[in-house]
Design a protein around this nucleic acid. Structure first.
Lengths: 112, 112
DNA sequence: AGAATCTACAACCATTTGGTTGTAGATTAC
DNA sequence: GTAATCTACAACCAAATGGTTGTAGATTCT
């Protein structure tokens, strides 16, 4: 039985790995609100431009953000589809647990 | 504005980090279905007992599973509360994006 | 054209991660 | 009591991660 249906395990690894860093979560949040270039993002954190660039690359590899070229800028925006996929995955784990509870309930109800 | 409300950033890091490995996700799935000891889990994977033990420890540190002592065994079961929290976090990101869409819609509707 | 801005990317470093083997402590079975 | 089972934990190793600085390529501004 497979929990995942449309994403490869590697892709799921990348999504959760990308979400496992507060700087990246903040980049995701900011780029959910408005499209930003990498310099604007970098200005928000106490780390080098290159470090923020790497964080954006991790989010991009996970397909959590999309980068668009406009002149010399790279505009970053969140991709809500991938976030939705991650949420769906967690829902499936919860569903497994709910099914288990249901089975226990039925057991207790039918066998008093 | 803070996305998280009750979990520390470090705790969120640990949750997503723990989910970023297919072996750990499988352990979580199996321990969602039934309580298992570490040996039973280890038998499922092509890696050493100690490696599986470490994976369980990562899940435990993230509070995604709970370990219970019974005799010489350590019984592992998923903690649905933490899974639910992770799902809630992702929902919040989606909500930010939906709010943005709503704002754009309103803008387009009121200013033709 | 020249300067400033935005980005890419390489090289490097310390720490963490994911695996291994090996040893030892409890608990259970015989 | 002894053997088998289940677990904990240390020590070690290779690879990945998260940061740095430095250099260079486009693009825009004056």
């Amino acid at each position: 039985m497979v929990v995942d249906s449309e994403l490869s395990e590697i892709a799921v690894d990348r999504i959760f790995r990308a979400l496992a860093d507060s700087t990246r979560r903040d980049i995701l949040r900011r780029s959910s609100i408005e499209e930003l270039n990498v310099s604007d993002l970098a200005a928000q954190y106490r780390m080098s431009f290159a470090a923020v660039q790497k964080h954006v690359a991790v989010l991009e590899a996970a397909e959590l953000v999309i980068k668009r070229v406009q002149g010399r800028e790279r505009l970053v925006r969140a991709d809500p589809k991938t976030i939705a996929k991650a949420e769906t995955l967690l829902k499936q784990y919860q569903q497994i647990w709910r099914d288990r509870i249901d089975r226990l309930d039925n057991l207790l109800a039918t066998d008093p």
